[in-house]
Design a protein around this nucleic acid. Structure first.
Lengths: 340, 340
DNA sequence: CTGTTAGCGCATTCAA
DNA sequence: TTGAATGCGCTAACAG
């Protein structure tokens, strides 16, 4: 543990004194304003350097009105979404220019209110709200004195701006890939049907099949977001429909379960049956055997987009609104292969 | 997206004016100071309520000298450690009383310096540095005008205070459990030997075996932190040493690979062979088949401890130092079982 | 009990 | 080009 070495941090006045100028001049010099003599500037910069001067962002925030600070209010307990989003946002803001308060409400509305108050009292310039599912979540309301963007979980108020991955398109993309590989007898094993994500993915898949004049060879099986469910459902599926040649899974976890079951039953993936997942959860997808083809949202660019929208709201006072569906992407690995 | 409804946030002066008192009195009333008349207080509180007054923490921070914020400087890319640590810290601080700046340096020293400057310019009251491996990392130095605690990755400077999980004890605990289950012919498949974590876990295991008058039946196999490695190593191991009755794995990922290999080779886990992992990475451990017994650190309490040490440093000016090894815990699931 | 005064550290007038 | 004065919003010290 480290503590104060000098009695107290150097202030602008200290720098000014040492450079034998006024605080005002020192301020201008340090902030690169033009109306200051070159010689003076060097002197001030030298003084600042020697004193290890760090401008006090708190004081600056007081006058400037903006604090160069944003709040990230999350209820994403395990951080699969919030961390990439945070990194994307940091990126877009430019590292170090803006700092991010990360607050975890843990799915508790009261705690969320507490954190919100705290963020507002700290005069954050904007807030990004990150939910842990794509179902609409309660709006923070319109009475917030800072721009707000909802990420992953959209707000239930259309006046808010929300960014959420396009799961319907994701479902389409998955099916499109399977069809491209020459598969025709496709089944679906998905997650908890109380999740919009589970339903949207099936919907997209059904639409894409329909466009090709096809449909699922078995009714979609929705259950829970776990490997266990994937295994159990796959066993049933392979038993009842031995002729399926592809399984579209609602998540990578489920797909891992399906791969397991297929191996137990002696079904060759990807030759006999292709398996595709969803999420691109790399630890899971990359370590599967065979490595898992999957569709996934790019959370970093989602974070970047959220940050850019906040920026826009800082500058223009244009309040955008509505739900924006962000693109998803196909990651081809070895669990799908063209029929040979 | 939401924007200003009223022209600007209400200030203490607005409240004071509305309550027909001075700003000082309003301040006292709002902060629950005793020297203010009950009637006045109610009037002030009412005014504040009506105006939707939110105290400006920035201004407060300017005078108070403390900002009630802390910085969490991390290089833990995927957040397995940093998020639980953050939650533990939030917990210890009391939700909303203190807010946390989360900065991701992405393993880049330059970016880390940038973030550090930014945090200091925001006058955070303390800093928690979270690394992504337990090898000592470069100290931020002693010249930092705020208390610093290193979590997970210890500082290489003994004058700093570091909290890091006790991997040696973890290795011991794993072996102790296997021995308790009646296993005697134990092997080890571990992670990347360039990691202190990999080496410490083996070390602990060897010590515990030694205490029981035993040793590994095969030289420990260290490779990488992946399921693939676990699978490959296990195949080799089962082939060369068909008589082993337990495998201690350096991580849950590796253990997953070992379970896979065992199943492929027709070895019954846990009856014939017990398998124990490390990390208690719940998504992996809980979805394994059978569910995976494992040893793991409790990162939330690590975060709590870090926060408490910062607290102590705020109050006393006592600068603690040294490396504290935090406890690890055994999580028994179904991949280990007493010999019957 | 209440109000006046002063100052936290900085940036922005506006004079000089 | 420089500096003196002013204020951001709040709290602490003191006087009334």
């Amino acid at each position: 543990m480290t503590s104060d070495d000098s009695s107290r941090a150097a202030t602008l006045n200290d720098v000014a004194a040492r450079a034998r100028v006024s605080a005002a001049t020192a301020s201008k010099a340090l902030n690169g304003r033009s109306d200051v003599a070159a010689a003076t500037r060097t002197r001030v910069l030298a003084a600042a350097e020697e004193l290890g001067f760090t401008p006090n962002a708190v004081a600056r925030g007081l006058t400037a009105g903006r604090t160069s600070t944003v709040g990230l209010l999350t209820s994403d307990l395990d951080g699969r979404f919030v961390l990439p989003i945070l990194m994307g946002a940091e990126d877009a803001f430019g590292a170090g220019r803006i700092d991010v308060f990360l607050c975890d409400a843990r799915g508790d509305a009261v705690r969320e209110q507490h954190h919100l108050r705290a963020l507002l009292s700290r005069r954050v310039d904007g807030i990004i709200v990150v939910g842990d599912r794509t179902d609409p979540r309660p709006s923070l309301g319109q009475a917030i004195p800072a721009p707000v963007v909802y990420a992953y979980a959209p707000s239930d108020d259309p006046r808010d701006l929300s960014l959420t991955p396009d799961n319907v398109e994701g479902g389409r993309a998955a099916i499109r890939h399977l069809l491209t590989c020459g598969r025709r007898r496709v089944a679906h094993i998905g997650g908890d049907p109380s999740y919009a994500a589970a339903r949207d993915r099936v919907l997209g898949a059904e639409l894409e099949l329909q466009d090709a004049g096809l449909s699922f060879v078995a009714p979609p099986m929705l259950g829970e977001w776990s490997e266990h469910w994937g295994r159990a459902a796959a066993r049933l599926l392979f038993d009842r429909h031995p002729d399926i040649d592809a399984v579209f899974c609602g998540s990578d976890q489920i797909a891992r379960g399906v791969l397991d079951a297929a191996r137990d039953l002696g079904r060759d993936v990807p030759r006999e049956v292709s398996v595709i997942g969803f999420d691109n959860w790399v630890v899971l997808a990359d370590n599967a055997q065979p490595r898992l083809t999957t569709v996934g949202a790019d959370f970093e660019s989602l974070g970047r987009a959220a940050a850019q929208h906040l920026f826009r709201a800082f500058d223009d006072n244009a309040a955008e609104s509505g739900v924006i569906h962000t693109p998803v992407q196909l990651f081809v690995r070895e669990s799908t292969i063209p029929v040979s």
